[in-house]
Computed example of a mutant assay.
Amino acid sequence: MASILTRIMLPTPPSLYVNYSSLITTAVISFIGLSEAFGSHLGYSKFFNLGSQNQNYRVKLSSRIGMLLLYTPSFLAALASLVLLLPHHKDARFLLLSLALTIHYFKRDFEVLFIHKYSGGMALGSAILISLSYFSSTAHLIYFHYKLYPTQLGKNQHDNQQPNIDMKYIGVLLFLIGISGNFYHHFLLSKLRKNGEKEKSYKIPRGGLFGLVICPHYLFEIIEFVGFCFISQTLYSFCFTIGTIFYLMGRSYATRKWYLSKFEDFPKEVKALVPFVF
């Protein structure tokens, strides 16, 4: 396993900050996902009123404002990397990574403004926590690649190094599949609540892969993040992707459990995240 990773990852510089931030990122995001699975939910969407004994004391944001707070800082960070850093780092891998991140968060803001239909709300504390997590991971993905793998000759010993197995174009393909599938299933979810229906009217999703898993939008989001990982091929991107997978597994498990509790006719064969498996 270790030999495979060394072949597909860019050489990792002997930096304690890189190594520890990678491990801490994996541990923290995975822990949040495990907490979701065991009922300690971040306060947004259908889980806003679950998992907290101090609901009356939480500052509540509208879902739209909260979701914009989640994604906009990361979008601006990714966009800034294209405008400010790319002219000094003329490398295809860095261009693809920055562009993919910019498109990802632009698409999320677009969905917030024009696609999603909202219920519940968002706790301010959860919004700040998630926003900082997204912003930190986006900034680190960009910074580590820009700082540690420069393309200008003479900067340091890692100049122009490439992994033994170049995965960046496979990463682009996975990113495009993931972002398309994620958008499509978000669109299907937006059609569940018609105009004039009660704000908190929930239905069992239909269409697409909803007949197999209750969270296909999370499945395609994982494919997106695997795409980021393959484009970047750094230790941090690998660790962040592992953490994200565990988080979305926990969130999807909690979502399926919620649907089972709300709908007696929820089809038991519909899994949480991976068709026929989980």
Results as ranks from 00 to 15, higher is better:
102 T>S: 15
189 L>D: 08
229 C>N: 14
182 N>E: 09
44 Y>N: 11
118 Y>M: 11
11 P>L: 04
188 L>E: 06
128 I>S: 08
84 L>S: 05
152 Q>G: 05
25 T>R: 08
95 L>R: 11
207 G>Y: 13
145 H>P: 02
185 H>S: 00
71 Y>N: 09
249 M>T: 09
276 F>V: 15
85 L>E: 09
85 L>A: 10
174 L>W: 04
191 K>R: 13
80 A>C: 08
72 T>S: 12
165 I>F: 10
56 N>W: 06
19 N>K: 11
212 L>I: 13
56 N>C: 02
191 K>A: 09
120 G>E: 09
249 M>P: 00
246 F>G: 01
185 H>Q: 00
166 D>C: 01
24 I>V: 15
261 S>C: 12
153 L>N: 14
9 M>V: 02
50 L>W: 02
182 N>K: 00
52 S>M: 05
221 E>P: 11
171 G>Y: 05
52 S>C: 09
21 S>A: 14
129 L>K: 02
111 E>N: 12
29 I>M: 13
151 T>S: 12
230 F>L: 14
193 R>A: 05
175 F>Q: 03
145 H>F: 14
225 F>R: 01
177 I>T: 09
197 E>W: 09
248 L>P: 07
118 Y>P: 03
130 I>M: 04
153 L>G: 08
190 S>T: 10
173 L>T: 14
124 L>G: 10
168 K>G: 00
278 F>V: 06
233 Q>W: 01
96 L>E: 03
100 A>C: 09
81 S>D: 04
68 L>R: 02
260 L>D: 06
94 F>Q: 03
126 S>R: 05
224 E>A: 04
108 R>S: 13
260 L>C: 10
260 L>I: 12
8 I>P: 04
64 R>W: 11
42 L>Q: 13
36 E>S: 05
274 V>Q: 03
71 Y>T: 11
217 H>V: 01
229 C>R: 10
272 A>D: 09
89 H>E: 10
68 L>N: 09
243 G>F: 07
171 G>C: 06
18 V>A: 05
148 L>D: 14
204 I>S: 12
151 T>Q: 10
100 A>H: 04
197 E>H: 08
132 L>P: 03
47 F>I: 06
166 D>P: 03
206 R>D: 07
196 G>R: 10
70 L>N: 07
165 I>T: 13
10 L>I: 02
219 L>I: 08
175 F>E: 02
129 L>V: 01
123 A>N: 04
144 F>M: 04
21 S>W: 13
